[in-house]
Amino acid sequence: MESSLYLLVPLSVALVFLIGWVFWRALHGGQFDDLDRPGYSILEDDDPKPK
C-alpha cells in the first residue's frame, strides 16, 4: 500500500507538468487573448453584405 506512494506521487508531479504544458500550448495559441469578443461574436451577423 505504501509502496504505491512511490509510484503515485512522482506520477502526480509528472501530471502537473503535463497539464502545465497543455495550458502553455493553449495560452500561446491565443485562446486567452480576448475573453470578451467571442461572447459578442454570436450576435454579429456574418452574412455577406447586400450589393
Partner: peptide, 25 residues
Amino acid sequence: ERATRRAALWRLFVAGFGAMQVMMY
C-alpha cells in the same frame, strides 16, 4: 502588450497550479 499579458497569465497559472498540488501533498 499581448506578449506581456500572456507571460503574466502563464506565471499566474504556474503558481496557481503548483500551489494547488503542493496543498494536496
